[in-house]
Amino acid sequence: MRETKNIILCGVGGQGTILTSKVLSNCLMKAGYDVKMSEVHGMAQRGGSVTTQVRFGDYVHSPIMGKGSADILVAFEKMEALRYLDMIKPEGKVILNDYEIASSTVLAGEEEYSSLILEEVTNAANASVLNACKIAGNIGNVKAMNIVLLGCLVKFMNLGELDWDTAIRENVKPSLVDLNIKAFYAGLGAVSN
């Protein structure tokens, strides 16, 4: 009996969290896991906070988890890591993209984007920080940032042996397959656990 594992991805609308969880859950399903994935649409393209949850194991009941339940939190943006930090188990892991997107309240000068966010997350939790934007940029397109982060996640979950190439090929636009496969391996190699 394989214990159910819980993953949360969070970020800002437009960052590609949903596509990432799609690749992830498809690959897990093909590897024989029961998988449930939950996402909330609606505001996804309008700069709002977005999160998806993926749960996998032999048999998964609930599509969502509560606080203190996630094994890994993948934060596509710093502030979002802090927003969802109470979702992880105290011994859980954070993959933190050192990337900042100001919200409309910050842009309007109504709130401040604290310079202490990164520190707060790394002090509170077991976090690995990386600059996925830079890694993706080096490969040729910053937009592949999401798949770089998928690579890191796979590394930490010890799921490297699954067929990720196929999962990427089947779920991203044909013209972006090569870029994304490169991004995936760059992410896989960017961290060590």
Binding site: G47, G48, E80, L82, L85, D86, I88, S104, Y113, A125
Partner: peptide, 21 residues
């Protein structure tokens, strides 16, 4: 019963309301 959660300063989190693209 409640799960244990991490302690951190949630006060640093700004709102992120949806906005015009």
């Amino acid at each position: 019963e409640e799960n244990n959660i991490l302690t951190f300063n949630k006060g640093l989190v700004t709102q992120r309301p949806a906005t015009f693209c």
